[in-house]
Write a protein that binds this DNA or RNA. Structure first.
Lengths: 236, 236
DNA sequence: GCAAAAGTGTTGTGTCTACACCCATGT
DNA sequence: ACATGGGTGTAGACACAACACTTTTGC
């Protein structure tokens, strides 16, 4: 068979793992101890093993290297193939987007840390561009899907959710309108219970939760909508 | 170096190439002459060569196999990795979405043909799912980007454009509203000239063209829009 | 009572669909 | 004249941002 003589590239999986921490969107990276790009920050990941899928591979890398089993969402981002992307040799990389809810604090190895994403930290190889791609994907999906569930705790007040959206989108979001948009779409639901106000007082906040724990498109036909008849029978 | 002993999967690139032909969205496939999956239809593509990028690879495959240089748009779709996806052995596949304007008719080899996409033809391997992914991507982008430029001729009447959107979306679209939506967004512009009516008469149709020949997001903030102040300064 | 925090009422705006109507041509 | 295909006017639906206002607590 010709298979054994055909050259094949090495293949790695990488993950852009985001979490909202201290009111900022942060990305998990580790500091390279060796050349090339020694001292720069790299995305977690590693080589694909024989017989595993890309998703199994990135889950394995994340579980082994950074004890992140709290991954609430994981989706494929893109596959990079520039021959010069790794100076050591030909290597393809398939990147994933991972999201961790804001109420957990995974233990990470000594060389690994969370970095605010606003200025992307000096990154190894093409990892800075990959972080940018993850950021664009996350921000887009925040407006037309329920992806917020993967960044938020199980239950939360609306001002907590607002903090998360502000951090992730990098701009102001009003709690008033956030509530109405997400409730109307059926993305959020009220739990019925309330949170005790602090010693500073104030009206007790209602607790909400996301209705579905999986990604759903909530605003499928933002524009160029199908005729109303179809909408009513198919979507409603 | 450890590189030479690490097992790496073979890597192929595939393309879902769509064109609107005879008022239907069709996909380019070739019929396999050998097992596995002999007689079933497969997407064009082939093995990645050393030192080339995925995009170079799929462009080479398309140019060599099916003389499609009229590709008006090409974007990466997804990378598939299920170990059993090719029974002959471990093989990853990176799929691309390609679009051909409706006014050209590329010459294709004898084993290759266009297939209406409504029932996806009996496909080899996981190619049916890949066609589905391409279809979803195209349909979504038709509503929030200018991607129609890649399916339409350089200039066209609105009823011609309507035919293309109807075929691609698989549902009714009114020419009236299509015109207004696309004109308002600045996606379309009038050429100033008109098309002669046939011998059947009728008011001569204005000719339009897409303003930009590259993909642009035209409806970035479909929902959860940023505050008006930011919109005015940044977008307008 | 008053400050603080949360939630609701309401208005205005922009963008879309739907449909009636008007326009320009060939026969 | 009138059939035919193309374009416009306009009303209504809807979802959103903005902001004033009300509710509920602690002190």
């Amino acid at each position: 068979m010709a298979k054994s003589i055909r050259p094949a590239p090495l293949h790695v999986t990488l993950a852009v793992v985001f979490q909202v921490r201290e009111r900022a969107l942060q990305v998990l990276m580790w500091q390279r101890g060796r050349d090339p790009d020694k001292g720069r920050w790299a995305l977690p990941g590693g080589y694909l093993d024989q017989g595993e899928t890309l998703e199994q591979s990135i889950r394995r890398q994340l579980a082994a290297k950074v004890d992140v089993r709290e991954l609430a969402h994981l989706e494929q981002l893109e596959t990079r193939s520039e021959p010069e992307r790794n100076p050591r040799g030909w290597e393809l990389a398939t990147a994933y987007l991972g999201l961790v809810p804001s109420d957990v604090d995974p233990a990470v190895p000594a060389d690994t840390a969370w970095h605010p994403v606003d200025p992307v930290p000096p990154a190894a190889f093409d990892h800075g561009e990959i972080v940018g791609a993850g950021l664009r994907r996350l921000r887009a999906k925040l407006s037309y899907t329920n992806i917020g569930f993967a960044l938020a705790p199980d239950v939360f007040t609306l001002s907590e959710l607002r903090t998360i959206y502000v951090a992730a989108l990098g701009r102001e979001v009003s709690a008033t309108n956030l509530q109405r948009v997400l409730l109307r779409r059926g993305v959020l639901e009220r739990t019925g219970s309330k949170r005790d106000p602090g010693r500073t007082g104030g009206r007790p906040a209602e607790l909400f939760r996301f209705r579905a724990p999986r990604l759903e498109v909530t605003d499928q036909f933002a524009v160029l909508r199908p005729p109303r008849r179809e909408l009513r029978s198919a979507t409603r």
